[in-house]
């Protein structure tokens, strides 16, 4: 059964496991950019949290009681939710 981790960018769990194993990716920041996880319209609401839960099994290290900086959790860039560009139009 295919497990989808990131709905917006259609990233499967298998793909995540493959790049971690084959390409020597060791952190969430790099993983995000490699597979575009969390870069779609959900802004990472779903996939980043799922990824955090999977952290120990993916990277072989515990995630509990460690800071976002230490875990290299990708920062959330504004806006939190998508907004239409027209709200910024003047005149």
């Amino acid at each position: 059964m295919t497990k989808i981790l990131c709905i917006c960018e259609e990233v499967t769990l298998e793909e995540v496991e493959r790049v971690v194993k084959e390409e020597g990716i060791k952190d969430m920041e790099t993983l995000k950019r490699r597979l575009r996880l969390g870069m779609g319209p959900c802004g990472g609401r779903y996939c980043i949290n799922t990824l955090l839960r999977l952290y120990p099994q993916l990277f072989g290290e515990p995630a509990r009681n460690r800071s976002d900086v230490e875990l290299k959790v990708p920062p959330s860039r504004p806006p939190t939710k998508p907004v239409y560009l027209y709200i910024f139009k003047e005149g």
């Binding site: 870069m39 319209p41 802004g43 860039r77 806006p79 998508p82 907004v83 239409y84 560009l85 027209y86």
Partner: peptide, 10 residues
């Protein structure tokens, strides 16, 4: 572009 949705600014 007005009906496009903004995802990120940096």
């Amino acid at each position: 572009i007005l009906s496009a949705e903004l995802l990120r600014v940096w």
